[in-house]
Amino acid sequence: MIAQMLMDGLIAGSMIGLGAIGITLTYSILRFANFAHGELVSWAAYFALSVSTALGTALPGLSASLGPFSFGWSLPLGLIAAMALTGLLALFADTLLFARLRARGASTIILVMAGFGAALTLRSLLEFIFTSKPMYFTSALQIARPLFAGARATPDQLLGLGLAVALVAAVHLILTRTAAGRAMRAVSENQALAGLAGIDVAKTIRLVWLFGASLAAVAGVMAGLLVQIRPYMGHDLLLPLFAAAILGGIGSVPGAMIAGLIVGLAEAACVNFIGAEWRAAVSFFILVAILLLRPQGLFGKAGA
């Protein structure tokens, strides 16, 4: 039972962690909490669903299950398309809204409110286009396989977990070993100095949107595959995402992932020991506790 709880927590936590990385990156560079990030998660799931359905209809062979997984090639291709389309959606939102407000020197609270507005608009659009009826990438049933100490997981769940670990390692390497990653870290610390060092700050901000949105896309497709696709799926993930981003320390990619796993495990423990109805309260409790006790998070710097 404990082993299963751990497995459930890790699987949920990996999705939260991926979404939290996008939040922590945009927060550290743009200096505001983007409450529309959850909607990027939702839109990504619907983008992937639309593309994979279209591909599966046009080329039925792409829908045939891949090995032990419940989906065919149409879903990975849909995910790649969703990463690109969600990135474009994020850039569109930035160009239309956030960049204009930044140019006017808008305060943080104005940007946060704009994010709320963008979130409402994007969510309502999803409901209008796709209705609020839950949708699924696949109707195939998967049997959870025994792993260790009584814990079981489906191949899709294990793939999601593996993908999350691989992506965190990749993002960490990009941030620490590439020119684009160094530029993002420099812009995060001091935009004026980054410009003096020859970094195109506007271009770097666009890159961060693309990066964060792509990770939100992976989280959205994972959530859609492992649970279901709904217009509110991203909104429901928002509190755990922010709890993980703040617990990990704003700006820390490994911190966001580790904190995502902690939030996921805490939620699973709550379901196991207290009751499923308290699950949503766990993220709120973690968020409040970390803000009171260690506002810089586990891996952040004081004052960040």
């Binding site: 160094r182 001091n190 100095l193 060092a197």
Partner: peptide
């Protein structure tokens, strides 16, 4: 850039 290493400070300037 205080949060970056000495080497990263120089490397990012060299990136241009």
């Amino acid at each position: 850039f205080a949060s970056l290493s000495i080497g990263e400070n120089l490397q990012l300037a060299a990136d241009v």
